[in-house]
Computed example of a mutant assay.
Amino acid sequence: MTDGIIATRDSDSASETMPDGAAAVARGIGRLFARNDIWCIPEMPLRNGRRADLMGIDAKGHIIIVEIKVARADLLGDGKWPDYLDFCDRFYWGLAPHLDRSPLEGNDFKPDCCGVIVADGYDAEILRPAPLQPLNAARRKTEVERLARAAMRRHAGVIDPECAGLFRGE
C-alpha cells in the first residue's frame, strides 16, 4: 500500500485522442485509480489554457492530475507542467515502463511535490507518492465542478452522440 493506494489489477480508462503509448499508460493508471476509488477523465482542459492528460478526484475530494510521458525527449522538453500545479492537490508523472525516470529526481522536476507512477496498458504502480498540497477551498470547489460537468458532458455524448454536438467546448 502506497499513500492509501493499493496496486493490483482491473477496470478501464484510456483516451482515443492520446498516442498509442500514452493511451496504454492512461489505461493502466485508470485501472489503478479505479481500484482505489479515484475517478479520472483524460484530456481535461484547465482554465489556464493547458490540458491535463488525466484529471480526477479521490474519495476525499482531492484533485489529482497526471502528466503522461512515453518518450525521453517529451519529458525533458516539457516546460509547461508546473502550470498544472495550481489546479490539483496531488500531481503525478505517469510514465511508460521503459522510460528512464532519473530526470525526475532533479530539482527542475520538483521531486518534493510530484509523485511518479509507472504504467502499461494493464496496470500501474506508484513508485513515489505525490504529497498532498491542498488547494484553497474556493479553487477546489471550482475545479471539482468543472471536472464533474466535463464528465457528465462526455457521458451524455456516449449515451446520445447528437447531444455531444450541441456543446462546442469544455
Rank of each mutant, 00 (worst) to 15 (best):
R154P: 00
I68V: 11
L95A: 10
L75A: 02
V70I: 10
E125N: 06
W39E: 10
G28W: 08
L95E: 02
R27A: 12
E43N: 11
G115I: 10
N136I: 09
E43L: 00
P161Y: 01
R50N: 14
A7C: 10
D86N: 09
N107V: 10
L76C: 05
C40F: 11
P82L: 04
I6Y: 11
T8Y: 09
R146C: 11
G49R: 00
V116T: 13
N136M: 07
A148C: 14
A151Y: 11
R31K: 15
V25I: 13
T2H: 11
A164W: 00
Y92A: 04
P129W: 05
I65A: 01
D89H: 10
A14V: 06
T17F: 06
D89L: 05
W39S: 03
Q133I: 15
G28M: 08
R153T: 12
M44I: 03
I63P: 01
K69N: 02
A151M: 15
R72T: 12
G169Q: 09
L46S: 02
D100T: 03
H62E: 15
A52K: 03
R31W: 02
P134Y: 10
S102A: 14
E125D: 12
F87K: 01
L166E: 13
T8N: 10
A23F: 08
G56Q: 07
D112K: 11
F33V: 01
N48D: 13
L75K: 04
E143I: 15
L46F: 02
S102F: 05
G121W: 07
R51M: 07
I6T: 13
A124I: 03
L99I: 08
I126L: 07
C113T: 10
F167T: 11
N36L: 01
M152D: 12
I126V: 15
A24G: 11
